[in-house]
Simulated assay, not measured.
Amino acid sequence: MISTKTRILVANVSNLPERAGYAINIDDQEIALFKVTNGKIYAIENHSPHPKGGVLTEGLVSGEYVFCPVYDWKISLSDGKVQAPDEGQVKTYQVEVEADNVYIII
């Protein structure tokens, strides 16, 4: 079976705050966009993998990581992995930037 991917316009680069989260909803998925200091944009699931969760757009961004605002788990924006000693992972989304447009591939 061939998987069909959809490219969805979600934001403008110029409107994204640097080192802060920006939440969007696509269907039933809440996604967090992050623009880091080098200008790269990441998209990850907007909830911490901790059982009690945490909204990641409310977390602190440092380099290419976001810290869960509830449990301070350090989560990689590039691969979604929670850093040791904690464990877990959030879903990541492919991002494409074209001119000032930010697209997510779903």
Rank of each mutant, 00 (worst) to 15 (best):
V55I: 13
Y65L: 11
A11I: 00
I44R: 02
L33A: 07
G39C: 09
Y71F: 14
S3H: 08
V66R: 06
N12R: 14
H50I: 02
V66T: 05
A84W: 11
S78Q: 07
D79M: 08
Y22P: 01
A32G: 02
I2Q: 13
I106M: 07
T92Y: 03
Q83H: 14
L16V: 01
A99H: 13
V82N: 11
L33S: 05
D79L: 06
E96V: 13
E87H: 05
E18N: 00
V82C: 11
V13A: 11
L60T: 15
G59V: 12
E45S: 10
V66M: 09
H47Y: 07
E87K: 10
D28G: 05
E96L: 11
N46T: 06
P17D: 02
W73A: 09
V95Y: 10
D27E: 05
S62R: 14
N38A: 03
D28M: 11
L77H: 05
D72R: 14
I41G: 06
G88F: 01
S14I: 04
Q89Y: 05
S62I: 14
A11H: 02
V66C: 05
K81N: 13
R7I: 07
H47T: 11
I26S: 01
T92Q: 08
N12E: 01
I41S: 03
G63C: 01
D28I: 09
A43S: 02
S76A: 11
R19N: 13
K74N: 12
N101R: 15
P51K: 14
G54Y: 07
Y42F: 15
S62H: 12
C68D: 15
L56C: 09
A32Q: 03
V102E: 04
V82E: 09
A84Q: 13
T4Q: 12
I104Q: 00
N25T: 15
Y103A: 07
C68M: 11
E98I: 13
A23E: 15
I8A: 02
S62Q: 12
D79N: 11
S76L: 07
D86I: 09
S48A: 09
G54C: 08
N46S: 06
I8Q: 08
D28E: 13
K52C: 09
A11G: 02
E96P: 01
G59Q: 00
G54Q: 09
V10K: 05
F34Q: 00
G59N: 01
V95W: 10
V82S: 10
I8R: 04
Q89A: 14
I26W: 03
T37E: 15
T6R: 15
I106Y: 02
L77E: 03
G59D: 03
L56G: 01
P69M: 12
H47W: 05
L16H: 00
V82T: 12
I26F: 09
V82K: 11
D28N: 15
T57I: 04
E18R: 08
T92E: 02
I26M: 03
F67L: 14
A32W: 00
S78P: 01
H50N: 09
I24M: 03
T4P: 05
N38R: 07
I2W: 13
Q89E: 14
